Amino acid sequence: MTAEVIEALHEAMCEAMVAGDLGELDDILAEGFTLTHMTGYVQSRSEWLDAIDTGEMQYHRMETVQARHGTDPTVPELTARTLTDATIWGSRATWRLVLRSWFEPRGDGWVITRTVASTW
């Protein structure tokens, strides 16, 4: 897996989040994907996609300001600092989030298996 593939998947996830594109997210997230929020709450893939679908979570803009790759070549990982303008459970803010994501092969491509969000 190349750095470009990892970065492209990260950008595709961010763009799909802003667009509310559940089909694209469905394509790039592993079945067992989880999103750990900055509060520590671990949300399943289906729960997160449902929250986007119902508008409980609306992503208005995401900008990746820095990204670095993990050091273990056997475990593809990307840590990205983002400015994320979102309305989450009724509160809108621009959060300075670190999104740490892990990837695995699926078919002829790759998917995101887990993302952990924290602040920077």
Rank of each mutant, 00 (worst) to 15 (best):
residue 19 A to K: 14
residue 43 Q to W: 03
residue 9 L to S: 02
residue 52 I to T: 07
residue 89 W to V: 04
residue 68 R to Y: 08
residue 64 T to L: 04
residue 114 R to A: 01
residue 54 T to R: 13
residue 68 R to Q: 13
residue 37 H to R: 03
residue 51 A to G: 05
residue 111 V to T: 06
residue 7 E to D: 13
residue 23 G to V: 05
residue 73 P to F: 10
residue 25 L to H: 07
residue 106 R to Y: 03
residue 108 D to W: 04
residue 101 S to A: 07
residue 107 G to Y: 10
residue 47 E to C: 11
residue 99 L to C: 02
residue 5 V to H: 09
residue 38 M to F: 11
residue 47 E to F: 11
residue 43 Q to F: 03
residue 34 T to H: 12
residue 43 Q to A: 05
residue 7 E to M: 05
residue 95 W to M: 10
residue 92 R to C: 02
residue 105 P to F: 00
residue 8 A to Q: 14
residue 100 R to P: 00
residue 77 E to L: 14
residue 61 R to Q: 13
residue 72 D to G: 01
residue 42 V to G: 00
residue 84 T to I: 07
residue 103 F to Y: 01
residue 86 A to S: 14
residue 60 H to V: 14
residue 9 L to N: 00
residue 75 V to H: 05
residue 15 E to P: 04
residue 9 L to C: 02
residue 44 S to M: 07
residue 63 E to M: 06
residue 81 R to C: 11
residue 100 R to D: 01
residue 70 G to Y: 09
residue 117 A to P: 01
residue 13 M to P: 02
residue 65 V to N: 09
residue 51 A to L: 13
residue 27 D to S: 14
residue 103 F to Q: 00
residue 50 D to F: 12
residue 63 E to R: 11
residue 28 I to Q: 13
residue 81 R to I: 13
residue 77 E to M: 13
residue 99 L to T: 03
residue 98 V to W: 00
residue 77 E to R: 12
residue 100 R to E: 01
residue 32 G to C: 02
residue 5 V to F: 03
residue 68 R to G: 11
residue 27 D to E: 15
residue 45 R to T: 02
residue 40 G to K: 02
residue 49 L to N: 05
residue 48 W to P: 00
residue 90 G to I: 01
residue 106 R to P: 03
residue 85 D to V: 11
residue 6 I to A: 10
residue 15 E to H: 13
residue 10 H to T: 07
residue 49 L to G: 06
residue 48 W to H: 15
residue 19 A to M: 10
residue 5 V to Y: 04
